[in-house]
């Protein structure tokens, strides 16, 4: 991946954005084609792989396991609330094969940044997932949802893809049903063996996605390519849920954004995010229908995984 850009290229990109014809012919608010497949890792509770255009390749695996509830914290009220909740642990890792800039220790800071962003959006009250429902025995045991994202290839717009793939993987995730029984020593639980009983995590449909708006010149674009990312003055990450509600805003990059433009960017982020979620959910539903059809017909549900051509 180039880490350098010539002044002529920079000018070409800025003018292109201004004229609404970007270097690959897209308009300012157009995404590249996204190829998505869910359920390709049989060992995981849920998984999805997303590829954007010719490059960016994100694999997300969700694993649910039983763990202790988080009882830490100084405040009694917070501790009380935490003890009745499940937990979500996020981890994003850039594979060194994705890009030269991730080789060696280069990806460490970047991994932390991505992990933190994902963690902040998903673990807050705006995260969508119903964490209370993930609690099995209050004060003792709960479901821990491990979300692991692996970046396998890089061609810009990583964060948006991480969020989209995470949402798809959570759609694919099934949590086994637990049966709680009362014994002399208190509460005990057991898993239901029937996989039919496994349920989605409640509230997955409210999980937000992120739209990164990049300010180039005096305008802003979505889905920046690596060369465009080098031209960016400032970035704005807008997390949006399916109702178009803003769930988080984070500014990046060294440049500044005027207040009026900031408002406009958040607004476009909201509408675009809602549109993306709608399209994503349509696709996920279509894929699910196909899969269930195959199961009914007793055909093998062949996932392409890494054997896919595009």
């Amino acid at each position: 991946m180039p880490v350098l850009i010539s002044p002529a290229e920079r000018e070409y990109i800025i003018n292109g954005v201004d004229h609404n014809i970007r270097a690959d012919g897209r308009g300012r608010l157009d995404y590249r084609q996204i190829v998505i497949e869910t359920g390709l890792i049989p060992q995981a509770s849920g998984s999805a792989r997303c590829r954007l255009g010719e490059g960016t390749d994100v694999l997300v695996g969700v694993n649910v396991e039983v763990g202790q509830v988080d009882m830490e914290g100084d405040d009694e009220v917070i501790r009380e609330r935490k003890s009745k909740r499940g937990r979500v642990i996020c981890n994003v890792e850039c594979s060194p094969i994705a890009s030269q800039q991730f080789a060696g220790r280069g990806a460490e800071d970047f991994n932390n940044e991505l992990t933190q962003t994902l963690d902040r959006v998903l673990n807050g009250p705006q995260g969508g997932l119903n964490l209370e429902k993930l609690c099995i025995i209050p004060g003792a045991e709960c479901w821990v949802v491990n979300i692991d994202a692996l970046i396998l290839d890089y061609a810009g717009n990583l964060l948006d893809m991480v969020f989209i793939t995470t949402r798809a993987a959570l759609h694919n995730t099934k949590v086994p049903k637990t049966i709680i029984t009362k014994t002399e020593d208190g509460l005990e639980f057991d898993f239901s063996d029937d996989m039919e009983d496994a349920e989605r995590i409640e509230g997955w449909e409210n999980v937000p996605i992120a739209v990164t708006l990049s300010k180039i010149g005096s305008r802003h674009i979505v889905d920046a390519t690596p060369l465009e990312e080098l031209t960016v003055d400032a970035r704005l990450l807008v997390a949006v849920n399916k109702n178009g509600k803003i769930c988080g805003v984070q500014k990046g990059g060294s440049g500044s954004i005027e207040p009026s433009l900031l408002n406009e960017m958040i607004q476009t982020g909201g509408t675009i995010g809602q549109h993306v979620i709608q399209k994503l959910d349509e696709q996920l539903e279509r894929e699910e229908k196909e899969t269930s059809k195959k199961i009914v017909r007793n055909e093998s549900v062949g996932k392409l995984g890494f054997f896919a051509a595009i």
């Binding site: 084609q33 996204i34 998505i36 894929e287």
Partner: peptide
């Protein structure tokens, strides 16, 4: 505003 989601294709 344009975004398109696709399913992966097998090699031919």
């Amino acid at each position: 505003m344009n975004v398109e989601f696709l399913l992966p294709e097998a090699h031919q």
